[in-house]
């Protein structure tokens, strides 16, 4: 092989392998943050609704601090190589989406749109090609959100909060209707979307139990 080429190729391969190492370190740090958020948010299932806001306050700073991570990514990923490496952090990113949207739902009952999640994670528009929040990962995060809310519907009732399941039901149905508008391939997203049906079914059952036992007051419309 051409001596020149040999050198260039070796340099290029070394660069990639260094880069992979650096990304791995970033991912470990990212993972730690998302795991902390998940750990904190896990307490919503046993926290009375009036203490929830206080709980959320403990999560917010962690979410904000993710901006350091995404900035780190944006610095090390070479221009246009986002898609080359993204499998390495997809899981963490989806968990971050999950945490951000759950936080939002618990704060004001609304769905945080992709662009807001993106800016909440500190992702900047000029990073295009280096670090973005892809639609697919946002959608994965939403599915995790629904999974969690179906669990919350159950536990809210146990904690005596009979209004929550109804609120969740309306919120989740809207998300589900959104998903129904997509043409998915036979991939993980499709399989997870299929499983959403069971979450909705579970939530409906809780709503059913609660309504028939007249435990919930007629609902004030919160969405338009």
């Amino acid at each position: 092989m051409d001596a020149n080429d040999l050198e260039t190729i070796n340099a290029s391969l070394d660069f990639d392998s260094d880069l992979r190492e650096k990304i791995r370190d970033q991912v470990t740090a990212f993972d730690k943050k998302t795991r902390t958020m998940v750990g904190l948010l896990n307490k919503i299932h046993s926290t009375p609704s009036d203490v929830i806001p206080k709980l959320l306050e403990t999560v917010r700073p962690v979410l904000s601090s993710c901006a350091v991570i995404t900035a780190g990514f944006s610095e090390i990923i070479p221009q246009d190589q986002f898609w080359r490496w993204k499998d390495m952090w997809s899981n963490s990113l989806r968990t971050a989406v999950f945490a951000a949207t759950l936080l939002q739902y618990l704060t004001d009952g609304t769905l945080m749109p992709l662009s807001t999640v993106s800016s909440n994670l500190g992702i900047q528009e000029e990073w295009a090609g280096r670090f973005v929040l892809p639609v697919e990962d946002y959608l994965h995060g939403l599915i995790s959100l629904v999974n969690e809310l179906s669990r919350l519907a159950v536990n809210a009732v146990t904690l005596g909060n009979f209004q929550e399941p109804i609120k969740i039901s309306l919120f989740v149905k809207e998300i589900f209707a959104g998903f129904a508008q997509l043409n998915l391939k036979n991939d993980t997203l499709r399989r997870r979307y299929d499983s959403l049906k069971y979450d909705i079914k579970k939530i409906e059952e809780v709503v059913y139990d609660v309504s028939l036992r007249k435990l919930a007051a007629p609902n004030q419309p919160t969405h338009a």
Binding site: L111, P113, I175, A177, F179, Q181, L182
Partner: peptide, 15 residues
């Protein structure tokens, strides 16, 4: 923006 219209945009992007 409504959920429906954002998902519509997602659909276009995914398609």
């Amino acid at each position: 923006i409504s959920v429906s219209s954002t998902f519509n945009a997602f659909r276009e992007e995914l398609d």
